[in-house]
């Protein structure tokens, strides 16, 4: 589907949706938001791009195969649990650093876990989306 209006709107909407997904990701844990919702919003941005420009262009924009994204996210989530395991605590205990950043607040392993969930959700949703659109193609 070639529509100039949709393509121009998508070029402006894609960075805004990605920025909003990062906002949801970093606000999680204490207020509504978190990795899952942020990942869904980010994958909705790529879905919009693939509707406006075609699936091939969306794949080119993503650059990485979605399967690798799933693997990376799962490894990141496991790594965030392993940090507590190797410092002689129960697996997946939240470890907070004392550093305070003006935007994110305190950094700790829950942010790392949320980042892993974020990447896994993007990978799985885009894998499903790309597979379905390739099947439908006549």
């Amino acid at each position: 589907m070639k529509s100039i209006i949709l393509q121009t709107a998508t070029r402006y909407l894609l960075p805004m949706l990605l920025l909003f997904s990062f906002f949801l990701l970093f606000r999680g844990h204490n207020s509504p938001g978190g990795g899952f919702v942020g990942g869904l919003v980010a994958s909705a941005a790529y879905a919009l791009y693939s509707i406006a420009f075609g699936v091939e262009e969306a794949k080119k924009l993503l650059r990485i195969e979605p399967v690798y994204l799933i693997a990376t996210g799962l490894m990141l989530a496991l790594f965030s649990g392993m940090i507590a395991f190797f410092s002689f605590d129960t697996f997946m205990t939240a470890k907070w650093s004392d550093l305070n950043f003006p935007l994110f607040g305190k950094l700790g392993t829950p942010l790392l876990f949320d980042l892993g969930v974020y990447i896994v959700v993007i990978g799985i949703t885009l894998k499903i989306l790309f597979t379905i659109s390739e099947e439908v193609k006549p």
Partner: peptide, 23 residues
């Protein structure tokens, strides 16, 4: 004000849904 973010998400996803339907 946290509830307002739900409105932002609904707006974006409704736009995406309508576009997909049109497609």
């Amino acid at each position: 004000t946290t509830v307002l973010d739900v409105g932002i998400i609904i707006a974006m996803l409704a736009f995406l849904g309508t576009t997909a339907f049109a497609y």
